[in-house]
Nucleic acid binder design. Structure first.
Lengths: 246, 246
DNA sequence: CGATTTCTTGATTATTTTCAACGGAGGTGG
DNA sequence: CCACCTCCGTTGAAAATAATCAAGAAATCG
């Protein structure tokens, strides 16, 4: 059974019956749904929950005094926002839904219990996700610092495709991509207009097909090469492995 | 007593006699010294230790296939490299000394013990540092994505000054800054030449004085404003607070 | 269908990189 | 002690890249 609930956590550790029962209990009281474009929590707020995304896309972002925004990371189905963040007094960033989203809120106390040793498998899964998120954040630093505009854009698309595939949300060489070009601009640190023009280049080089909200990568390898992308930092199992674990 | 050993960890949790004893025991066998410019561990290696910097500056970096480099973070005296990283099979980045460095290596097994609940204070301190490092990494993402060249450079300088002050390594408005302009370029994602010219601007605006390896900030507030810097993401106590804890 | 958001394009301006060259500081060996 | 070398900082000029401005087309949503 690959329920959306287990998809994320069972990737990184094998959950037993007890673990699953605990999570399903939480499910009853802590499930929330959001429309697209709503903040779960804002920069400056006191964090009380961590969020396990069950369905939909979310993202973390930071706003500067000059009103510019930087998207810091994407949370895909199965991803958890940093569980340790509850130790901070105030959020240094905001978390919001990109599409309509269903999530499970993990109260601070529960997270502490889980990380503290009750249900070690869940704790292990949370720690592993935190580690993976840190590696991604490092790669984004490299992306913004060292890659050219087309490389940056391609890199983001490659990463998202790999991550989506790891949770079974691709079909063949295509996937759903709910990002607007403005979102892509705020992800890559480029202007909207520039993103548009480099996307056009990627299209005419037959590296991507992007129509509506559907992304097709006719030649993933080629896009990876063009974007200086290597998947190793993601620490992902591929689909086959993931299925084996369930 | 503010020994270099305790400086880093006692910032985030109160250590008792037992804790200190454990660390001093480690000290005997696990202290290492490096000349400037040596790798502690390289991208691709299997991580076996976490590193607590006792003296000197270190940094994390990533190298791209095209030989470009991005500096990901600085490790100042008292800082610990990510303790959880030992759970990964391979390093996704390298860690190296920027100056001559003394550090204490924390073996994987010890880290696991500490994070597992023996010596909860040390565990708490390690977790807090990890959290702080993650917040810094996020801010660097913003820095590279959204700030102009002079803002980026100024922001890095402000951050380093604040962090150095928090561990007592500033005197008045000045501090030691062992970075070459090439290092700054690899930190900010700018070309060496451009860094040089924007530094010149910052100098002639009287925002920085940089001679030899000595940095003076005649008006920290002004530099912060010019660089869109706010210290909140650092989650630092200031000097007074830090002393209160010792 | 009307309103709004998103995408697209061209033209202009600004920023940043690259190329090339030179000076000084510090270290090494003859 | 001096010659030489390497690393680091500095500068100017040209080329490339990206941002901004402005406007219109296409898609989406109630």
């Amino acid at each position: 059974m690959t329920s959306p609930l287990l998809r994320g956590l069972s990737r990184y550790a094998t959950l037993d019956g007890d673990d699953v029962r605990l999570l399903e209990e939480q499910l009853e009281t802590q499930v929330r749904t959001y429309d697209a474009g709503q903040d779960f929590i804002r920069q400056g707020d006191r964090p009380m929950h961590s969020y396990l995304i069950l369905d939909g896309w979310a993202y973390c972002y930071k706003t500067l005094p000059n009103r510019r925004r930087q998207i810091l990371s994407f949370l895909l189905p199965g991803d958890v926002s940093d569980p340790n963040i509850c130790s901070l007094h105030r959020m240094d960033h905001s978390i919001a839904s990109l599409t309509a989203t269903t999530l499970m809120a993990l109260p601070q106390t529960l997270v502490r219990t889980l990380m503290g040793g009750a249900h070690p498998s869940i704790g292990k899964a949370l720690a592993a996700q935190t580690l993976a998120a840190a590696a991604i954040q490092r790669e984004w630093t490299v992306n913004l610092g060292q890659r050219s505009a087309p490389e940056r854009i391609g890199h983001v698309l490659c990463e998202l495709f790999h991550r989506l595939r790891a949770v079974g949300l691709t079909s063949g060489n295509q996937c759903f991509l709910p990002l607007t070009q403005t979102d892509l601009a705020e992800t890559t640190g480029l202007s909207l207009v520039h993103v548009n023009k480099r996307l056009r280049d990627l299209r005419s080089a037959d590296l991507i097909i992007l129509r509506g909200k559907m992304l097709t990568l006719p030649d993933l390898r080629a896009l990876e090469t063009a974007s200086l992308f290597t998947a190793d930092y993601l620490n992902l199992f591929d689909v086959a492995d993931a299925n084996r674990l369930v």
